Amino acid sequence: MARRVSEIAEEMADREAIRDTLMRYCRGTDRCDETLLRSAYWPDSHDDHLEFSGDIEQFIAYSKPILQAMRYSMHMLANCLICIAGDQADVESYFQGYHSIPDEQGHRRDAFAAGRYLDTFEKRNDEWRILKRFVMVDWFRELPDSADWQAGPFGMGDKVKRGDLQPDDFSYHLLSRLR
């Protein structure tokens, strides 16, 4: 349903706060930053995430070893539809996730997934966070690892800064205000 410009204008700060929460979630997941990840959810939240279903503390306990084993992970968001009604908002965010996953022998495979986060946000004390999340996967691909991690991207070896987990990721030294 089309919305009037004046309606959206009144909600701009709330919409941006919701987007900020989504970005904290992605960064917290990709950098394996528990504090940042926790800041995206209310303590009484519930997440139905692939095979997992539980609260944020259970989700962190479930996902942390998986994320640490991956080490290389990237989540990107697009198409974010936000419908605010008072202190609650229904939000659909399209995601793409890229992961380097090790097997028992230490060989890696590339896994790509895309889908949608279907979230209920709640605003408490002038702060938006996720109250309920349901993750829906629309497509995925898995391939043998095609990268030569020793040679590095484009054969440039260790001359290229690579992403890493918190606190070793270079962004934690560069972007001090994100802490």
Results as ranks from 00 to 15, higher is better:
residue 28 G to D: 00
residue 25 Y to T: 01
residue 36 L to N: 01
residue 145 D to C: 14
residue 86 G to D: 09
residue 113 A to F: 01
residue 135 V to F: 02
residue 62 Y to E: 05
residue 161 K to C: 06
residue 19 R to S: 01
residue 167 P to F: 10
residue 63 S to F: 04
residue 147 A to N: 12
residue 11 E to W: 05
residue 86 G to A: 11
residue 116 R to T: 13
residue 143 L to W: 05
residue 167 P to Q: 08
residue 152 G to E: 11
residue 85 A to H: 07
residue 104 E to M: 07
residue 81 L to F: 11
residue 53 S to A: 15
residue 12 M to Q: 15
residue 75 H to E: 07
residue 68 Q to W: 01
residue 51 E to G: 11
residue 115 G to C: 09
residue 131 L to M: 10
residue 145 D to E: 14
residue 27 R to G: 00
residue 110 D to R: 04
residue 89 A to G: 10
residue 155 G to Q: 12
residue 151 A to Y: 04
residue 51 E to K: 12
residue 135 V to Q: 06
residue 109 R to E: 07
residue 175 L to K: 13
residue 72 Y to K: 09
residue 29 T to W: 08
residue 2 A to S: 14
residue 149 W to I: 06
residue 176 S to Y: 01
residue 111 A to F: 11
residue 91 V to H: 06
residue 34 E to W: 03
residue 147 A to K: 13
residue 5 V to P: 05
residue 51 E to P: 11
residue 77 L to V: 09
residue 49 H to N: 09
residue 75 H to F: 11
residue 96 Q to N: 12
residue 125 N to H: 15
residue 118 L to V: 13
residue 34 E to V: 02
residue 104 E to W: 01
residue 111 A to I: 01
residue 28 G to S: 00
residue 51 E to T: 15
residue 131 L to P: 02
residue 47 D to A: 14
residue 8 I to Y: 00
residue 100 S to N: 09
residue 65 P to L: 08
residue 51 E to V: 14
residue 110 D to E: 12
residue 58 Q to H: 07
residue 86 G to I: 07
residue 69 A to D: 14
residue 28 G to Q: 00
residue 41 Y to C: 11
residue 176 S to R: 15
residue 120 T to L: 15
residue 135 V to C: 03
residue 85 A to I: 00
residue 120 T to S: 03
residue 77 L to C: 03
residue 100 S to R: 14
residue 93 S to F: 03
residue 152 G to F: 08
residue 137 V to W: 07
residue 156 M to Y: 12
residue 106 G to Q: 04
residue 118 L to K: 13
residue 103 D to E: 03
residue 160 V to D: 04
residue 50 L to G: 15
residue 171 S to M: 09
residue 136 M to C: 11
residue 105 Q to N: 15
residue 42 W to P: 05
residue 120 T to N: 09
residue 14 D to R: 01
residue 68 Q to D: 12
residue 46 H to Q: 14
residue 164 D to P: 02
residue 34 E to L: 00
residue 86 G to L: 09
residue 125 N to V: 08
residue 20 D to H: 11
residue 70 M to D: 02
residue 134 F to S: 12
residue 31 R to D: 03
residue 139 W to I: 05
residue 38 R to P: 00
residue 163 G to Q: 13
residue 17 A to I: 03
residue 121 F to V: 03
residue 124 R to W: 02
residue 107 H to Q: 10
residue 43 P to L: 04
residue 114 A to G: 12
residue 92 E to Y: 06
residue 87 D to Y: 06
residue 163 G to D: 13
residue 89 A to M: 08
residue 7 E to C: 07
residue 84 I to W: 02
residue 118 L to A: 04
residue 158 D to F: 00
residue 151 A to K: 11
residue 174 L to F: 14
residue 25 Y to Q: 04
residue 61 A to G: 06
residue 105 Q to K: 14
residue 169 D to I: 02
residue 100 S to V: 09
residue 171 S to Q: 04
residue 152 G to Q: 10
residue 10 E to G: 11
residue 130 I to N: 06
residue 19 R to Q: 02
residue 65 P to T: 07
residue 164 D to F: 06
residue 19 R to M: 03
residue 41 Y to I: 05
residue 44 D to M: 08
residue 136 M to T: 07
residue 55 D to I: 04
